[in-house]
């Protein structure tokens, strides 16, 4: 974990409402693992504004890539960052996804939830399938990057403007049935809104596979000190505890979560 002042190297709009920010982050980028995140202090926000957490989309030669959607006051201001400006970054934070997997990986993304899954895909030895959903085609991002690495991509949109019409769980169900029919196993790696995480976790339970969910909660400190971003969790013996999404997570196996 480091606390660095990082220079903006590139900052582009990749599609409507979505931006890709590349920061020179040195050791933060070198030591980051898929599923971890960074905590940014956005310059230009008024004095005393809290930091904002962002998934790590990719790292490349000391660069830290952040793919984000402009959703509020912080990201509105963040959009205006220009190359050469500097941003305070704490990271890498959180536990990250498990990496050495024996079975097929199915990545499941809702909208910009695809960000940490791309970083994961670059590190998984065995290629699999990305199932990605959104409201419309505008929410379906960077699928060509997965295809370029040899991953199969299946898209679902609520309005049918890209891929199949429906929720991400519709094509996911087909994938789970396919894996079940072949007698193989699979694991799900999932990032998206809470409702989607919960639904995917339930499907995983029905099909007897693990689902590693990346939780997104409003955070304050990002390092496990303030206890603002907690989640009720279940241990293997059935007892419950209250964990910190930022430092005990943000990745939890679906069966651990008490919704």
């Amino acid at each position: 974990m480091f606390d660095f002042l990082c220079e903006v190297i590139e900052h582009d709009e990749v599609s409507k409402e979505y931006c890709l920010l590349k920061l020179f982050a040195g050791e933060i980028a070198h030591t980051a693992r898929p599923g971890q995140f960074v905590h940014l202090r956005i310059p230009g926000l008024e004095q005393g504004s809290l930091r904002r957490p962002f998934s790590i989309f990719n790292t490349d030669k000391g660069l830290l890539w952040i793919l984000y959607k402009s959703v509020g006051r912080g990201t509105e201001v963040m959009k205006k960052l220009e190359p050469g400006e500097e941003v305070k970054v704490i990271g890498p934070l959180g536990n990250g996804f498990p990496l050495q997997r024996e079975v097929e990986s199915i990545l499941v993304a809702g909208g910009y939830g695809v960000a940490p899954l791309y970083f994961l895909a670059t590190r998984l030895k065995r290629k699999g399938v990305l199932v990605v959903g959104g409201r419309s085609a505008d929410d379906i991002l960077v699928t060509d990057m997965f295809v370029g690495m040899g991953w199969r991509v299946v898209v679902a949109t609520v309005d049918g403007s890209s891929g199949v019409k429906g929720l991400v769980t519709d094509p996911l169900l087909d994938e789970l049935k396919r894996v079940e029919a072949t007698g193989g196993g699979c694991e799900l790696f999932v990032c998206g809104p809470d409702g989607m995480l919960r639904a995917v976790g339930e499907l995983a339970r029905q099909y007897g596979c693990k689902a590693w969910l990346s939780l997104d909660k409003h955070m304050v400190c990002g390092v496990g000190a303030c206890l603002a971003c907690v989640q009720k969790l279940r241990r293997s013996d059935g007892s419950t505890w209250v964990g910190r999404v930022c430092s005990d997570g943000p990745i939890f196996e679906a069966g651990e979560i008490v919704w």
């Binding site: 480091f2 606390d3 400190c221 390092v223 496990g224 000190a225 430092s247």
Partner: peptide, 12 residues
């Protein structure tokens, strides 16, 4: 309440 138990911030 703003610094946990010290060790959370010890890397930084």
């Amino acid at each position: 309440g703003t610094f946990g138990y010290g060790q959370e911030y010890a890397d930084l």
